[in-house]
Amino acid sequence: METFIAQLLNGLSLGSIYALIALGYTMVYGIIQLINFAHGEVLMIGAFAGFYAITKLKLNFFLALIFAMVVSALLGIIIELAAYRPLRNSPRLAALITAIGVSLFLQNGGLVVFGADYVSFPQAVNKVTYKLLGGSVTVTSHQILILIVTIVMMLVLQYIVLKTKTGKAMRAVSFDKDAALLMGINVDSVISITFAIGSALAAVAGVLLGMYYQTIYPLMGTMPGLKAFVAAVLGGIGIIPGAMAGGFLLGIIETFVSGYWSTTYRDVVVFGLLIVILIVKPAGLLGKDTREKV
């Protein structure tokens, strides 16, 4: 039982990070039906921005987090402007391939600028270990922080999407772009805002990953990015609560596979799950079946 609780806690921390990244995928997909494969690299840039904010600008953790969010948000807007907007009316495959190109560009650009070495991430928040159930289960202040930051970010996002005018515009654009345009919504700026919010969430995930795993490097976004993509599909791509649920679920599944079975099978299970979901319920766990309008 103690082991189960310990593994569940491990899974929740990992799942929160996946959920944060998955939100970015799902928001962008919801609005322009594009899988933004460069999302993992936006996360990496966010992590490095956080690193410089802490080491060079001597900011505290929360200010560094905000700094990283701003940098990534700007990067997200630039990527959309430069790479995706010119292709908005091209076939979707063209945009998808461009996304992969942007991803590789940022990865290798990162290798040139930051070097291939691991950079150890400063421990800006003290790590305190709390022992529960007589020491058999431990929780660190980092894990608690990850969970709290994730939940706060999700509440803020839900508020923006459901209660503000911008959120309303986002939902309108995602529902029907042309109709939204006719209603006087500035579609371009709404798409920019969506990229900015998604990228800012990726930056949060990047900084949290850096803190949790102690090192950052230019290829750090690739694997979490792919996993979060699976999480987004699992929950139902384009649906915000789906990304959250998918993220947590995937984190817990991964942890249980490694903990009760073997690490070697972890990625087999995760990507196997992606295939099964796509075959059995392509709309995802929380998705409704919608027919493609012809």
Partner: peptide, 16 residues
């Protein structure tokens, strides 16, 4: 237990 190159999360195996 084995880990692979990209692994960052070792807690599940260590708990085991």
């Amino acid at each position: 237990e084995g880990y692979v190159k990209e692994d960052q999360e070792f807690r599940p195996t260590l708990t085991k």
